[in-house]
Design a protein around this nucleic acid. Sequence first.
DNA 1: CGTCCAAATTGATCCATATCAATCTCGTAC
DNA 2: GTACGAGATTGATATGGATCAATTTGGACG
Lengths: 249, 249
Amino acid sequence: MAQAIPIRKNSPLKASCHQCSLSNLCLPLAIEENDLERLEDIVQQGRIFNRGEHIFDQSTPFRSCFAVKSGSIKTSIITEGGEEQVTGFFMPGELVGLDSMSGETYACTAKALERTSVCEFPIEKLEELTGKMPELQHHMYHLMSQEIQNSHQLAMLLSKNTAEERIAALLLSLSSRFQRRRLSPTNFSLPMARNDIANFLGLAVETVSRVFTRFQNQGLIRARGREVELLDVEALQTVTREFSRQGCQ
Amino acid sequence: MAQAIPIRKNSPLKASCHQCSLSNLCLPLAIEENDLERLEDIVQQGRIFNRGEHIFDQSTPFRSCFAVKSGSIKTSIITEGGEEQVTGFFMPGELVGLDSMSGETYACTAKALERTSVCEFPIEKLEELTGKMPELQHHMYHLMSQEIQNSHQLAMLLSKNTAEERIAALLLSLSSRFQRRRLSPTNFSLPMARNDIANFLGLAVETVSRVFTRFQNQGLIRARGREVELLDVEALQTVTREFSRQGCQ
DNA sequence: CGTCCAAATTGATCCATATCAATCTCGTAC
DNA sequence: GTACGAGATTGATATGGATCAATTTGGACG
């Protein structure tokens, strides 16, 4: 299988947001034809990261935001003590790095959970562009605001909800994000390990494991390793009193 | 004391960010003289709210962000079930409403914790202005990014830290925010009730109370009702492994 | 100055989840 | 195919903080 796939003639090195199936999810929401071209001018498309590789970490000077094209990314803060706090999971169509726009270096570390490709938006050029394009500026505010809300919802989940509620909420969040990408909302593969789930939700791994089996015994889900099937979405929604991470957009 | 204070002749009804002692804290950071005037044109200054009054709530259509001039504000999310989750406390120089820039209505409810005056920034005009003023736009991104980080720090505190650590962190956060306003960082009055602290930090009121007395017995603080004196800041910092809410800016 | 009510404190008990410990599973490399 | 190790599961026990209950404090108001 050493045969390389031939590169298409005239395949542009620069981005082509036009053809991107995620174009309505990430940045170029609802902007004009020639506006889209301006965005294409500044984006660096198609960087690939393998599982476990860092897109950036807390010591990296902040230069760019990244939109996930395929794969998935985990962001986390590492404390001086070396403890990790997972702050989010990012799926295709979502924008990573918005929390870093107020410092010299990134505010967190971003790691590819699987083979992942991203579009890079250099922040200086992006700011320049949003200054000229009110729609795009508005969209940036929208995305950042959404990110604040997500984080508030997470805080709420952590401070008020039980282990079962937190995990149900996460499953439903993932479900709706898969659905938005026109993938099955009931049958998907978790991109992250149990450990990451536990850390994100402020639980011990053992607790996550136990809740998964409990849900399984109750007929709410079917889970084998990272493969998950939601058997009773309604019931899961009942378990979750609150929380709906809408992700990016 | 029925005598009204006479209104100064020519006292402008519109804002005067020039004279505002908070001008380097809230929006008009590092902008030019005539830029500041443009900001003054859009801001509605001097609205006063009494203790307990709502600046806005979740059913209010989103129109404006608010900068705290004096007093303090509590923001919280009310769930369908009527549960409250306090999402933040805002002090003079800080901007409220950034989490609401992605919906038709406000994402939370804002309540004055004491007699509070605010400056109102109508969002449409503000967006228009940031489109023309790159510095101001940059500052908005900065503020929103900071807000995301604050919220991540809170999530971290809630998921990883003990009751003592959370309360020490809050006290130190308030301390540094008082200091930024050139007030005493060791001797201040808490604007919020124990209940609000408990809710914000994901604890029961009783626990907050107990930790306060424990800190007092250990000689870390002196507290009588809402009056607090930090006696050993170093020790409090040791208690807090993490977390530093920088507030706005 | 005393009354009243909300807020705060203190004490006793209980429980959800962490922690510790022991397998088990499965993907990967040899 | 077998061996290995990381990740996941399951079981037993400990504990921090919630909850329930009872005072106490303090501020607003007549």
